[in-house]
């Protein structure tokens, strides 16, 4: 749910990074955080376990710049990927404006990708959101790993509509900003329509 404040001339949008456990959602946010100028970002909040697994969510506000005199601010969230954090995952999707699905390219994680994407659709439905109508990007992460399966195979299994597909290596930043740009652009384009 976008929030437009005429008094402070700000527009705030919420983007959620979704995907199976250890697919690289937090790594995406960490790279964005590390590569962004201090004045354009707030703190990166990580509610994680002692072993650095996301417990509830990661959050960072990112200011992209000004459009038509309005500061555009994106609030980036990740969900906990592990299956048993289902209740928390659902809560974070509330009020989402755009979703990035981070798929793990490794062959042994294909089932986890499929399960997670179905879980995403199901959780969106509980808020009466439809993935088909939502700004959405499919990121194929960990393209550098030897066990990564061909991108075309991942696409044929995981692509839901005509969403942009970005190949990435989040740990080195490859494709991270392309992904963010692809989803942010769709969110802003939606605003034009509304």
């Amino acid at each position: 749910m976008t929030f437009i404040n005429y008094a402070s001339r700000e527009i705030n949008c919420k983007i959620v990074y979704y995907g199976p456990g250890l697919c690289g959602k937090t790594t995406n946010l960490q790279f964005i955080y590390d590569s962004t100028a201090a004045q354009a970002k707030g703190k990166l909040i990580s509610l994680a376990t002692e072993t650095d697994r996301t417990l509830f969510f990661d959050f960072m506000p990112l200011e992209l710049g000004t459009v038509r005199g309005f500061k555009t601010r994106f609030h980036l969230y990740t969900v906990p990927g592990q299956v048993f954090y289902e209740a928390s995952r659902k809560l974070i999707l509330k009020g989402v404006d755009g979703v990035v699905f981070v798929a793990d390219s490794q062959e042994e994680r294909m089932d986890a990708n499929i399960e997670s994407i179905f879980n995403l659709e199901e959780n969106l439905r509980t808020y009466s959101y439809d993935l088909m109508k939502l700004p959405y990007v499919l990121q194929l992460n960990k393209r550098d790993l030897p066990s990564a399966i061909p991108a075309a195979d991942l696409v044929s299994e995981l692509r839901r509509k005509d969403e942009p597909v970005v190949e990435a290596v989040a740990s080195t930043g490859v494709g991270v900003f392309d992904t963010l740009k692809a989803v942010a652009k769709q969110v802003l384009t939606e605003l034009r329509k509304s």
Binding site: R68, K181, L191, R192, S194
Partner: peptide, 19 residues
């Protein structure tokens, strides 16, 4: 009337020009 109803693709792209 929202300020974004007439936003152009160029304006959206310009937000990412720093990248």
């Amino acid at each position: 009337s929202l300020p974004f109803s007439e936003i152009t693709d160029e304006e959206i792209d310009s937000l990412f020009s720093y990248q």
